[in-house]
Amino acid sequence: MSGIEISELLEKSKELDSLKKQQEEYLQEINKIQKKLLSTPEVVAEKSGDAMLTRLRTLYILVKDLSDNEVSVSSALIGHLDALLQSGLSAAQRKKIEVSEQKKKRMKSESDLSRLTSAASMRSQLEQAANLKGEQVAARVTDDAENAEKDEWFVVKVIHFDKDAKEFEVLDEEPGDDEESVQRKYKLPMSRIIPFPKKNDPSGAPDFLPGRQVLAVYPGTTALYKATVVNHRKRKSEDYVLEFDDDEEDGSLPKRSVPFYKVVPLP
């Protein structure tokens, strides 16, 4: 609501007030003349009576004109008020729409960014997975439905990665010690593969603090088991000292040394 609009509204209000006051003055004079005519009707027959009637007629005309003006000014006031209310409502609606549009744009932008970030993250993961070809990784391998619930992890070698299927083809190079055991291939989803840290890049390996539970290759085997870090390493290239679950000897858990590149986060 602008200052000009308020000023116009006040001017019309003053004009309406002035019209009402003028009407009241004329009505008071009309009442006086009418009372006199009622109290002395014989005056009508005299010349003074003609003057009174003429004045009365003039007053009625003036009151009628004032009444018409009052209607006109009142209508103008109503129009001003409607315009101001409509203007205020429109401004509020515009503000609401503007805020809504900004919110929609922000949500769309965030959604687009999220999709782009998600897509970029997925592309990065796929590229990293493809680069694991020929590398040894930790894999959860199960032969049948009965063992599907068992959380058993082994060291396998990546032969191929299918980006479309998001699936690894891996080779179990050391399946067992019995004569019938042979190297076997498996196709596994990305969720069942954990890359090992690079042996020649300790700086890129995670640093697990004492008390942290991890998954680690048990010394002398290709199987990974749950273990707890017990030592505080000064350098990332140092071996971890671990206590493996269910590895009890003489009533206690022996501390076993495991290279950093054979320790991964517990899934």
Rank of each mutant, 00 (worst) to 15 (best):
R94F: 11
Q86R: 11
L84I: 08
L77P: 01
D68C: 01
G79A: 02
D82C: 07
K103G: 00
E110Q: 14
R106H: 10
I97Y: 06
G88S: 04
S72E: 07
Q86S: 15
A83F: 09
L81R: 12
S100R: 10
K103I: 02
D112S: 05
V71A: 14
E70R: 13
H80D: 10
A76M: 00
M107N: 14
N69L: 06
L89G: 05
Q102A: 12
R106Y: 12
S100L: 12
N69F: 07
I78S: 13
L85D: 01
V71T: 10
V99E: 15
K95F: 09
S100W: 07
Q86H: 10
S67L: 01
R94P: 00
Q102G: 03
Q86Y: 09
L84E: 00
Q102I: 05
L81K: 11
L84R: 03
A76T: 02
R106A: 13
V73Y: 04
K103P: 02
M107W: 13
V71H: 11
I78F: 09
V99M: 13
V71W: 09
L66K: 03
L81E: 05
L66N: 05
L81V: 08
S72V: 00
I97F: 07
S111T: 06
A76G: 00
L113C: 06
S75D: 06
R106M: 10
S90G: 08
R106F: 08
D112V: 10
S74C: 02
L89H: 13
S87M: 09
S109Q: 15
S111M: 13
K96C: 10
R94S: 11
A76L: 03
L84A: 06
S87R: 11
D112C: 01
K108M: 08
L113T: 09
M107K: 15
E70D: 06
A76R: 07
S67T: 08
L113S: 10
I78W: 08
N69V: 01
H80G: 04
L113R: 15
N69Y: 01
S111N: 11
E110A: 07
S90P: 03
S75A: 10
M107F: 14
E110I: 04
K96Q: 12
S75N: 05
K96L: 11
V99K: 15
S74D: 03
M107T: 13
L85C: 09
S100D: 11
R94C: 08
L89E: 13
E70A: 14
E101N: 07
L66G: 03
E98N: 13
N69D: 14
L89D: 11
I97H: 06
D82N: 10
D68L: 05
A92D: 03
G88P: 01
K96M: 12
A92I: 07
A92S: 11
K103E: 09
S74R: 04
L113F: 03
I97V: 12
L66M: 06
Q86D: 08
K95E: 08
D82G: 00
S90I: 03
L81I: 08
E98C: 09
S100P: 05
I78Y: 09
L89V: 05
L89S: 14
M107P: 07
E98D: 14
